[in-house]
Amino acid sequence: MIQTATKADTTEPMITMSDVGKWYGAFQALHDVDITVAKGERIVLCGPSGSGKSTLIRCINHLEAYQKGEIHVGGILLGHSSKTIDAVRREVGMVFQQFNLFPHLTVLQNCMLAPIRALGLSKAEAQERAKSLLERVKISEQAEKYPAQLSGGQQQRVAIARALCMRPKVMLFDEPTSALDPEMVKEVLDTMIALAEEGMTMICVTHEMGFARQVADRVIFMANGAIVEEAPPAEFFSNPQHERTRKFLGEILGRH
């Protein structure tokens, strides 16, 4: 098992996953996953398709139930009762590959819905918060439009703003740039970099290795539902320990 000395050892961890196992029916998608993420830490999670990256981060906000081990988020034990699940979800924002904006609501309404319904903000408070976050992702002039009227990159920035409107302690990104045309990748990565610089705790599933080099504190490599290796990016890219990692890096960096 791999243990790395990170900031997690000195500060209260934001996320701990200990010995987490997850099955889809008879198929085991996660094997004994141990991860500790410190407050403010930026993790990039990578690995081949089907290696369980989405499954792992979806366990953190209980979009997928896990069957073994324990997950703590912001000091809350993520049990299987809707009470702890909702408590964790209020602290954890998630950005999806396919954006998943609500198509029948305007950009502004997309951002206002959850703060009103899940946090009990007044309409005015929610609107003020939404507007300031849309400003922050540089899209405030589109506030009255519907998602379908925006480009993919703009939609993904709205999705980031929508998640931030909950003032989460943690942000999870599941291949946020994979569905985008190449020319739109940068605007989304820039938004994520800005967020990282502000100190947000982030776990990003991405194959954007430039992003990993620039912002990640640690890169975690997964294969077949297990963590193979984790290291700071400089070390991860220059001196991968495992054959599986080298092969993956060869493929992914060779492509770009």
């Binding site: 979009l63 954890v92 998943n100 609500f102």
Partner: peptide
Amino acid sequence: GQTEAAKALALGYVS
């Protein structure tokens, strides 16, 4: 994805 996004935003069943 719509339900998943709503769940991730901590919206309850009714909402």
